[in-house]
């Protein structure tokens, strides 16, 4: 192999790469916040009301979890304008990521809620907690603490999956890589560099989530967050 690597040419495109990194961080953080909030709301709704609400939430979760993220993005970006909703590429990416992440968070938090033992709730009742207090202090918060590492793994996966948004022309990190590639034809170099950036972003995100976990739930949860790898659930 007589190929000489030239990473030097990439330096002049650092503005594009930096703006790509920034957009990746922005849509990832926003979708994590929105998706996680939606997940908590949906998982709570399905366990509180049951019946039709539970059926609808479960149907939503199953539909999202059994179709590819790319196709969901296509439906949001190309399909919504047909219904009269015109959205830009960045907004479409954010909507798609939030919809996707909400379904996964719902499923993870549901598992946590269902793992809370009945005797805990009875203990809460015996202490004279109101229904709301029981739900908040006995069910929801311990449930989230229990599944927090799994949830964080899903967040990291979502950040990595944001690279797929380049397919609908969102100008995030993968798209800026494609741009630089088209300018310099140094495909291998740019993709190696960008892969390393993604790796670094994944590590930083995991560390940040572990810190948040320490602040919210204490040291034990934080340690599990750092070492947890994506759980593949059925």
């Amino acid at each position: 192999m007589t190929y000489t690597f030239q990473f030097g040419v990439l330096a002049q495109y650092q503005d594009q790469i930096l703006s790509g990194i920034w957009l990746t961080i922005k849509i990832s953080v926003l979708s994590i916040i929105l998706g996680c909030a939606a997940g908590i709301a949906l998982a709570s709704a399905r366990s509180i009301w049951g019946g039709a609400v539970r059926f609808l939430v479960d149907a939503y979760v199953e539909i999202i979890r059994n179709t590819p993220f790319l196709v969901q993005l296509f439906i949001v970006y190309f399909g919504l304008p047909g219904l009269g909703l015109r959205v830009g590429a960045d907004t479409a990416a954010l909507i798609g990521m939030t919809i996707n992440l909400a379904a996964y968070s719902t499923e993870i938090i549901r598992a946590g809620i269902e793992a809370v033992h009945k005797s805990q709730i009875e203990a809460g009742e015996a202490l004279g907690f109101t229904r709301f207090q029981i739900y908040r202090h006995v069910i929801l918060v311990p449930a989230i603490a229990k599944v927090y590492p799994a949830l964080c793994s899903q967040f990291v996966l979502m950040m990595l999956a944001s690279s797929i948004c380049s397919a609908i022309s969102t100008q995030e990190l993968a798209a800026s890589a494609a741009f630089v590639e088209s300018q310099t034809y140094r495909s291998f170099e740019i993709y190696i560099a960008v892969t390393l950036i993604y790796l670094a972003l994944a590590l930083v995100l995991r560390a940040a989530l572990a810190l948040i976990g320490m602040w919210l739930f204490g040291r034990r949860v934080a340690r599990r967050t750092m070492t947890a790898l994506p759980e593949v659930q059925a």
Binding site: L160, F188, L199
Partner: peptide, 21 residues
């Protein structure tokens, strides 16, 4: 750790361009 820390898309591009290199 590395495979799980990078996007599938990047694995795809790297093997696509890497193999042709």
């Amino acid at each position: 750790q590395i495979i799980q820390g990078i996007p599938v898309l990047m694995i795809l591009f790297l093997s696509y361009y890497g193999l042709s290199l």
